[in-house]
Design a protein around this nucleic acid. Sequence first.
DNA 1: TCATCAACTGATACCAGGTGTCAACTGGTG
DNA 2: CACCAGTTGACACCTGGTATCAGTTGATGA
Lengths: 151, 151
Amino acid sequence: MLTSRDVEAILIQHGYRLTRPRAAVVDAVLKYTHPFTAEQLVADVGTGKGGSIGRATIYRTLEILASLDVLTRLIQPDGHPAYICDSLGHRHHIVCSGCGTAVAFTFCPVQELVPALARDTAFEIHDHLLEVFGVCPSCQVSATSAGGPRA
Amino acid sequence: MLTSRDVEAILIQHGYRLTRPRAAVVDAVLKYTHPFTAEQLVADVGTGKGGSIGRATIYRTLEILASLDVLTRLIQPDGHPAYICDSLGHRHHIVCSGCGTAVAFTFCPVQELVPALARDTAFEIHDHLLEVFGVCPSCQVSATSAGGPRA
DNA sequence: TCATCAACTGATACCAGGTGTCAACTGGTG
DNA sequence: CACCAGTTGACACCTGGTATCAGTTGATGA
């Protein structure tokens, strides 16, 4: 698990300044256990709340953190982009459509598929996007205890 | 490959009326060989052009067609949603980041992963999202002939 | 400690994509 | 033909994200 020190070190390593607003964004980001949207972060640390960080700054910082692989950008079931911060490296997530909990998994089935896919389609494959959606154990329980799930 | 007749039959089968605007949207949709965005469709058949179909109607019709699996909703490399219409069933796409060409593949590596993932995470897995991005053969050629690719 | 300067910030206006509303219209049915 | 639910199109609105720019901040060297 990353700490704010780690992230700050990464920022500096890459030639970014460590400013107060950035530190605040990093702190907030590390507190999330679920995927969060940019707007959520704006609501949390944006102007008028505990913090007073401008929208633009927050979006810019998210951009930077994502480019440094500190944050992973993922797509929510409703199609909206979200971010999650767990640790470095290539990984995918299962996201609970009930409570939003995300669990990461490092095994990437697409990487195994890439050679065959490249051969079959003659495409040069550069990247991929994979999200899995489902219901986490605790949401399964509450759905059952609530009298059975209903579409 | 689907024809407009097929799609119209599907619509009626599911209790939707076959109206002139819907038929026009279906026709337009079937003409696309590449993934297209809703706004593109609005530009093509929307008010003021050859057609005169309202934005809302186009969005609504896309929604219906996607819910009937006539259209597949996919995510473009820039993160914007797009639609593609090739045929029915579960499938994924490789999208060329140069020209937008999409090639479908029916083999889904995620389905094989689902049991293990469900066991490991205790999630009930319902759905997934998979897009692969790359460069198609003809874009590879033009990149080379244009003096070599550049990051 | 101070001066300098580029990087950074926050406010604001703006833009694009998408949705909600509602009166008018249309197609299917009897 | 009359009726009515489903559908349409115009339009206002909302939301997420971006561009701009004057002012501020932090790192650096003297």
